[in-house]
């Protein structure tokens, strides 16, 4: 038994010495950015894709060196982010609230590295927190959904059952009721764990049962799971609203609009400023006012979202910005 162990250890010792031989010294003076994606992965066509897009754009336009990693499980964030800090990445960007604690911890351990996090607030001087007023956008698409639903029945499929997604859900429902006081909103969540960001079959199931119950438009705020809702909309010939990235082209004619959350812009701007030596910690907020949150219009949804509806939506946006319409914020609710 002992020999067994010694032998196994010995094999690795051989590996290590080989490693020393092969270790190449890669000297690079370029600006290195590490992007740590959430469980949805870079092909979720939504939240993570948007972050990936922003970082890739920075790579081509600004000539930075970019490394993108995805977490296999929730405990893997810390080794990855710490590993990047040890490997002297110049800017490390965590995508998603799940990385809040880890970024906080590693930022304290490596005070001379720069970090950014999306969807969470970390109060360290070397961390930039990129947060979005999701409720403002969700309110507008809620109204668009209600206007596009003759029966007044609209649905919501959320990813993970967490406060962030409840923030979408609450404002979406309020927006629908603002547009049509008799609107009925059906809400479902894909799951309780981070796996809920990447479970399209479950989201598909929820969407089909919502459509079958008479729902005419579903807002999918579910990361990669949302793709299941898009498939359901196509099958059932109903409408769907995308989230985060512009998803109008995924199923042209079935996508009413997408609630844009410009993670790409936030990521790109953070990289650009950090590369120019102008990194600053603190909180950056993105909302309707600075187009960080919006609804999408393009050639794909021109038919389902006619000009008259766009004008009403733009008028609603103006009213929200002027403070004449109050959007409920789940984060600020009275318990």
């Amino acid at each position: 038994m002992m020999r067994w162990i010694l032998f196994a250890v010995g094999r690795f010792a051989v590996g290590v010495s080989l490693a020393a031989l092969a270790a190449a010294t890669a000297g690079a003076a370029e600006f290195r950015v590490g992007l740590v994606l959430d469980r949805g992965g870079k092909d979720d066509k939504s939240f993570n894709s948007s972050a990936f897009l922003g970082a890739t754009e920075a790579k081509t336009k600004l000539g930075i060196a970019l490394k993108v990693v995805e977490a296999p499980d929730d405990n893997a964030f810390e080794p990855m982010i710490r590993g990047m800090a040890e490997k002297r990445f110049d800017l490390i960007i965590g995508i998603g609230f799940a990385q809040q604690e880890v970024i906080q911890k590693v930022a304290l351990q490596f005070p001379d590295r720069h970090f950014a996090i999306v969807d969470a607030r970390v109060a360290e001087p070397n961390v930039r927190s990129l947060v979005f007023a999701e409720h403002e956008g969700a309110f507008v698409v809620g109204a668009i959904a209600a206007w596009s639903s003759p029966g007044g029945k609209v649905g919501f499929v959320g990813g993970m059952d967490v406060p962030l997604i409840h923030r979408f859900a609450l404002a979406y429902e309020a927006g629908a009721k603002h547009a049509n006081p008799r609107a009925v909103v059906t809400t479902s969540f894909v799951g309780l764990t981070s796996a809920a960001w990447n479970n399209p079959p479950r989201a598909h199931e929820l969407a089909v049962s919502q459509y079958d119950s008479g729902v005419e438009v579903i807002f999918a705020a579910a990361g990669a799971s949302g793709l299941g809702v898009f498939d359901a909309a196509e099958e059932k010939k109903k409408l769907v609203i995308g989230v985060d990235a512009n998803q109008d082209g995924l199923k042209p004619g079935r996508v009413l609009t997408s609630m844009l959350k410009r993670v790409d812009q936030a990521v790109y701007a953070s990289i650009a400023e950090a590369q120019a030596g102008r990194f600053a910690g603190g909180v950056r907020e993105f909302g309707l006012a600075n187009q960080g949150v919006d609804y999408s219009t393009d050639q794909y949804n021109a038919q389902v979202l006619p000009a008259a509806l766009r004008q009403r939506a733009d008028a609603l946006k103006a009213e929200i910005l002027a403070g004449r319409v109050q959007v409920p914020d789940y984060y600020q609710r009275k318990p």
């Binding site: 690795f12 590996g15 290590v16 080989l18 490693a19 020393a20 031989l21 092969a22 270790a23 590993g83």
Partner: peptide
Amino acid sequence: LHVLAVLARGA
């Protein structure tokens, strides 16, 4: 060899 090196050094 580089892969092996990265694996061994990382672990």
